[in-house]
Amino acid sequence: MVRSGRRKKGVRLREELTKGIFKQNPVISLTPLGLCPTLAVTTSLKNGIAMGLAATAVLVSSNFIISSFKRFIPREVRIPCYIVVIATFVTIVELVMKAMLPPALNQQLGIFVPLIVVNCIILGRAEAFASKNTVGASLLDGIGMGAGFTLALAVISSIRELLGSGAIWGYPISLSYLPAAVMVMAPGAFLVLGLLLGAYNLVMGARQAGGKAPEQICLCCAPRRSEAEER
């Protein structure tokens, strides 16, 4: 079927936006990225979404800047440059959060807001996508990946909050059993993520005919590789 150039572009742009949500979800896909905040702050839905939105803000801004300046950044020093750009935006986001969000929330997020700097997702997308694509596509990619990240955090944190504190978004829900405190502690986090990854593999495996167990490859190569597979 012959498609007009404009229509094809529209389809591609929408794909850039949505691929980060399920097909290439950075947290839950083949090789999980950005695991540190995923497990640490998902003790309640409020925390999870706050972290997700913060990371999305940083991701979109840094993708924008890196994509705009990609021609001026020499290849040998590109990683330190990206990191400094990301660190600057993280500082901005952190100061904004400290000013505008309630102190309890800030305290619960703790060091994980500054740790967005070394979040593999942001550096990974900068390296794999923003440095090679147009500003518009990079923005959409950032929004999409950020949305996927936030979605994953939301799912994990709602499970943990429901089972661990018997509440959702701070509103207690009457359960017929005592909530298991271990769910909001370390073991619960690993357990929920492990089962969620298994469920994702099951769904993706069912979609592809004859899908074999996904191989785990080097983390920073993962976005590059899946990009190559896309083409």
Binding site: M185, P187, F190, L191, G194, L195, G198, N201, A213
Partner: peptide, 23 residues
């Protein structure tokens, strides 16, 4: 290990158990 749990998912389950013991 069941195919969908092979690799990273089951590793996380094991980590959960180790973390539990470290509690």
């Amino acid at each position: 290990v069941p195919r969908s749990m092979k690799g990273v998912p089951v590793a996380f389950i094991c980590t959960a158990l180790i973390a539990l013991s470290f509690l």
